[in-house]
Amino acid sequence: MSAVATAPGGTSAKKQQKNGRNELSDRLKAENSLGQRLVAPAVAIMLLVTAFPILRALYLSFYNYSLTSPDDREFIGISNYVTALSDGLFWRDIAMTVLYMVVTVAIELVIGFAFALVMHRIVFARGVIRTSILIPYGIITVVSGFAWQFAFTSSNGFVNGWLPFIDDGFNWFGDTTPAVIAIMVSEIWKTTPFMSLLLLAGLAQVSEDMIEAAKVDGAGWWQRLFRVVLPNMQAAIMVAVLFRALDAYRIFDNIFVMTSGAVGTESISFLVYRQTIEQFQLGMGSALSVLLFLSVLLVAFIIVKLFRVDLARARGE
């Protein structure tokens, strides 16, 4: 891919054009090479930290390579992959990650849409609403994780006291289900504003005339919502879902802060981290990195196919 950044490759054909058009083609050539030179640094930086390392990970994944004994590095073929894929832990973490993704995105979509509807209709306090909705968006995820973890603890939090059906001494982080709920709450709180802003932009594109026409024809509020508004902002919804789903699939910060992966809350990202940084198993960590990368591609592919997302729109093209 880096070939884009270097030399204008395919311009030689233009040289054979007739004299009369030389001036024009020279200008086109100059524009072409200027364009490529302007994007080159950005493309180089983007690939330096993504394409190159992932290829390096692919290479390392075929080795038994541990930082505790770096000299014993040896080629072991696909053993790391066989080990990972035949281990129940890998599949468990994948399932957990998919669960985080599906549940949080579904809830965010509903709440985010409700927020967008309110923001679309209000005429007062717009600045205040926008300012406050950007605070969860801008806040450090780790801070959100801590805030919610402390809120859920029985020793210093308030959640147990506020929920009438929960015992005051209940330990949210002692078992998988409540711990996962706590993590999801933090994740949903922080990312719903982003979803609602994308949906708000989509709502603004639905023509008011069409809604009025439906109203005149006697359509009720729900009918207008499901038959007119939602179908007309499908593209915005799909883009929001795609962005958020892939983001949610990478869930790491909240798990790290709130449970450190204990009581079965570990995600696939956390497993990769643990293998590399805590256990120094670079070979296995690299194999898991490659699998994580491939699984993200698969998730993106499924979402695009499933919802027929128009990617050109996502680029603002």
Binding site: P53, A57, R250, S286, S289, V296
Partner: peptide, 14 residues
């Protein structure tokens, strides 16, 4: 859309 964590192993090493 890149899974950031998958870069941790190779970047750590590099």
């Amino acid at each position: 859309m890149f899974p950031v964590v998958s870069l941790v192993s190779p970047l750590f090493d590099m």
